[in-house]
Amino acid sequence: MSEIDNYLKQVRKGMRFVSGSNKTSFCNELGAQFEHRGSLPQEKPVALGKAMRQVYGIGMFYRIILIITAFPLGVLSTPMIGSWFPGVPINLFLLLSLMWVFLAAYFGGRWSGLFTGISAAVPRVIALIIFTIGLDFINQFFDSFEVSEGDLGLVLITSLLLPIVGFFAGGRIRRPD
C-alpha cells in the first residue's frame, strides 16, 4: 500500500460514520492535492478526518438510527410506565434519552438533535394525552390509578425540552471553530 493510500485509509477511519460519498469526495480531494504538492498533509490523518466529520456530520443512515432508537427510550422514560411496572428505572431512561439527543446533536447537528428529541418526546406526549383525557377509562382496568397535575406538568416540560435542547445544542456544539 502506497504512502498516500495508507494516509487516506487513516483519514477514512477518522471520518467514521460520515456518509460514504462525503468520505470519497474528501479523500479524492486529498489525493489530488498529493499529486499536486507531492507531499502528505502535515496533520495526523485521523485528526484531519475527525475535523472533517465535524463539518459534514454523520451520515443520514446513522442519523435515522439515532432518531428511531430514541423512540423506545422515550417510551421507557414515561412516568406512567413506572406506575405499572415499578421496576423500570424511568429517570435513568429519561437521562439516556437526553444523552441520546445530545449525541445526535453533536454528531448530526441541530436538525438531527431536533428530530431525535421529537422522537423521544412523542411517546411521552402521547402518554400525557392518554392519561389526561382517559384517566377514568384507565381506572376501569387499574383501580385507583392516580396521576397528579404536578406529574403531568413535569412530563410535559421534560418532553418539550428534549427537542428544544437537541436543536440548540446542535447549533452550539457543532458551531464552526
Binding site: F26, E29, L30, Q33, P41, Q42, E43, A47, L48, A51, M52, Q54, V55, Y56, P176, D177
Partner: peptide, 15 residues
Amino acid sequence: ITEGALYPALGRLEK
C-alpha cells in the same frame, strides 16, 4: 496554513 485548517474551513464555507 495547513490542511487541517484549510479543508474544514472550505467545507464550512461551502456548507
